[in-house]
Amino acid sequence: MKQGAPSKIALNLSLLFVVFLILFPVFYIVQTSLKSMADVYSGSFFFEAKMMNYEEIFTGSRSNFAELTRNSLIVSSSVALICGAIGSLAAYSLARLSWQRWVAGGIIVWLLFINMMPPIVFVTPYYLWARAAGIYDTPAAVIMAHVVLNMPLAVIMMMNFFAEVPKELEEAAVIDGCTQWQAFRLVILPIVRPGLAAMAVLVFVFSWKEFLFSLSLTTTSAGRTIPVGIANFVQEFNIRYGEMAAGSFVAMIPALILVLLAQRHIIKGLTVGAVKG
């Protein structure tokens, strides 16, 4: 790939501008996290930075962000793993293994339908199940709900990526004596690893942001995730901006690190697998 130096500079300059557009509100969040309410209300550029909001979210009566962050990491990674595994197997089967049209079509419509329903319609049934199963107020309950809600995304996205793999590769693998499982694991999966990584990241992200089920299936910080802690700052008649900003910023960092590491790992790990195969 050859590119002229000027066009390369232009490309990077415009991308840096995009980076600025994305980060601008993030800087604003960081700035707000250092303000008291009175500073926010004054609307002035100049203020005395305070750490009070960070103290409040970790030691205050209202939130235990350390626990919430831990729960969020457990829940979102588990959901990404489970959806990744179940979703890519099912997607491979549906996209490549010659199901009758009505089977594949029926399942896709079913998945789309779940995705289209407002999540609130699932709240009461899942609440009753979680209570009955004895997992209420644990991360397991939240994981259950998030896995179901994210399954449509996982399957439909992966079906698309599997469909683009040339058929000859599988056939060659089977001729070489691979079982279908081996062909899937050692030949096909490594080819779609960018797609797999993107899917896992998106599922992780959706679980990370989810509020309704995290709230409905828990009572204490034993099972609750970050969005509930953040939403607690939206109160009956005011919003605690500073604490909300501090909470959002603090929670973002471990998630970002984890997402980047996982992305690299998925891409590298599967490459190794492919080479071995």
Binding site: V18, V19, L23, P25, V40, K209, I230, M244, L256
Partner: peptide, 25 residues
């Protein structure tokens, strides 16, 4: 790597906080 990490950031903030921060802006 910079671009890829930065682009993910907006997705990691809960929608309630996004709504609040933008309404503040």
């Amino acid at each position: 790597i910079l671009y890829r990490s930065v682009v993910i950031i907006p997705l990691l903030i809960p929608p309630v906080a996004i709504g609040t921060m933008w309404s503040l802006m």
